[in-house]
Design a protein around this nucleic acid. Structure first.
Ligand SMILES: [Mn+2]
Ligand SMILES: [Mn+2]
Ligand SMILES: [Zn+2]
Ligand SMILES: [Zn+2]
Lengths: 146, 146
DNA sequence: TCGATATTGAAAACGGATTTCAAAATACAG
DNA sequence: CTGTATTTTGAAATCCGTTTTCAATATCGA
């Protein structure tokens, strides 16, 4: 049994929620993939192996993952929620290619520090942040030049 | 006649769109206010003086403003689009208070530069970006401590 | 095992954004 | 000025992802 499964089971217990087969199936499927999938995409994928599981359950369970810290929820402006597995407490931000939809992850400690500085000067308490750079990935730039 | 009105008139001419009374009324009302208003809020405000103008027209016109660079469009995660007047080519990012909804603007050239650095290392061409820090403003922090 | 409680899946409801459409307004050539 | 092609308008309908409802089912502690 892995770290994140334990975390989720503890979360369920703490909140007096029940450990159901659907939740475990969804958790395993979610941990197995690593993209920034929309609820719909993930549901369609899952349905291939588990046709009995409903969209509503998938949606609710992804929300639980986000609440317990296993998943990070994103909105890259295409009108859909996206989820990704949250590894430990690692944080990263995203480059979003508007050409092909590719998502590139990056970490920049200097930016993170400067954000804290900004918050401090405004006496603002940061709970979360989002930094996304939108544009064209190297492939799309190359394609566009032709 | 001011700068932004000229810009919009040029934009309309360029796109072979018509200069209507509604568009001018909406433009003047939009330039007059300076918050980060949702379409709905702006429409309700406008309706007080101009009950004849429909929501659809307001929505469409705000989109035109965004397209021609007069307005900046934001999504602060509350499920509504928000618009603000874009002054010249000045850019800023936002602190969003999840307690009271207050929006604080900030500019940080170092962060902007580091974003360019990140993009360069990924050979990524930035078209736009969003940086939002979510949390509690100083007032809400103070309130919460009681 | 029993029963209180939580969960499930299908379908409905929700809510903001967008589109439809017929009537009205605009631009512009003549 | 017209006349006319084209665009715009406002109300209502539609879209579409998200969330809720609800009756049937599953979980789990006593
Ligand atoms: Mn990511
Ligand atoms: Mn602003
Ligand atoms: Zn790309
Ligand atoms: Zn506040």
């Amino acid at each position: 049994m892995k770290k994140q499964e334990e975390l989720f089971l503890e979360f369920l217990a703490r909140k007096r929620l029940k450990n159901t087969s659907q939740r475990m199936i969804i958790l395993k499927a979610f941990l197995r993939q690593n993209s920034h999938l929309s609820t719909e995409d993930f549901y369609l994928q899952l349905r291939k192996k588990h046709p009995g599981i409903g969209y509503a359950t998938v949606h609710r369970t992804l929300k639980l993952f986000a609440e317990c810290g296993i998943a990070a929820e994103h909105n890259f402006g295409d009108g859909q929620m996206r989820f990704e597995v949250c590894h430990d407490n690692e944080h990263h931000d995203h480059l979003v290619c508007t050409g092909c939809g590719r998502i590139i992850e990056f970490e920049n400690q200097q930016i993170e520090q400067l954000q804290l500085d900004v918050a401090r000067t405004h006496k603002f308490f940061i709970k979360s942040h989002r930094l996304e750079l939108y544009g064209l990935c190297s492939d799309c730039v190359a394609t566009e030049q032709q």
